[in-house]
């Protein structure tokens, strides 16, 4: 059984205190102070209280059910009676896309959010793109460091330092 070094004891204690802080701050301060001009809100909350968000800048995520065009605008249905209106210069998402949008809510009067900007979320490609980074990091780390069970610490791999 290796002796735990004082630095490691302090590191574990500090991490433990931080986790306690995380839990207690979750309980004491559950709400954030928003600085963005866009209010982050779910589409369900907008639909539940449309008057509260009417004419307000909102940021939300939604899944496109269907897309149609009206003049130069694209209209995407996201719920039974909720739509996103995209003006053509900012592009048009496809059916089935999960999108982040920023825009102005007119759900109460027109069942729509006028989209200023949008971004198609693609978690699967994000994870796939992270895999080369994780593999490269592990390879580099193991190239430079070795684990010493006697001291229970990462040490320099012999002969690999410049």
């Amino acid at each position: 059984m290796p002796r735990i070094r004082p630095e490691l004891k302090r590191g574990i204690a500090l991490l433990g205190l931080f986790i306690i802080l995380m839990v207690s701050s979750d309980l004491l301060f559950p709400y954030s102070i928003q600085k963005s001009q866009y209010i982050a809100v779910s589409i369900e909350d907008i639909k539940a209280n449309p008057s509260l968000f009417e004419g307000e800048s909102v940021s939300t995520t939604a899944t496109i059910i269907s897309v149609s065009s009206s003049g130069s605008n694209f209209i995407a249905q996201i719920e039974e009676d909720a739509y996103l209106t995209f003006q053509s210069p900012i592009g048009s998402p496809q059916e089935g896309d999960r999108v982040y949008v920023r825009g102005i809510s007119w759900i109460q009067t027109n069942d729509t959010i006028i989209v200023h900007e949008f971004y198609v979320l693609d978690y699967s490609s994000s994870i796939i793109r992270s895999i080369p980074g994780i593999i490269l990091f592990i390879a580099l780390f193991l190239w430079v460091f070795d684990f010493d069970f006697k001291t229970f610490a990462f040490i320099e791999r012999r002969g690999k330092s410049a």
Partner: peptide
Amino acid sequence: VLAYFAAACFQ
């Protein structure tokens, strides 16, 4: 905190 903990893992 993370940097401190990580640094403690190296010798």
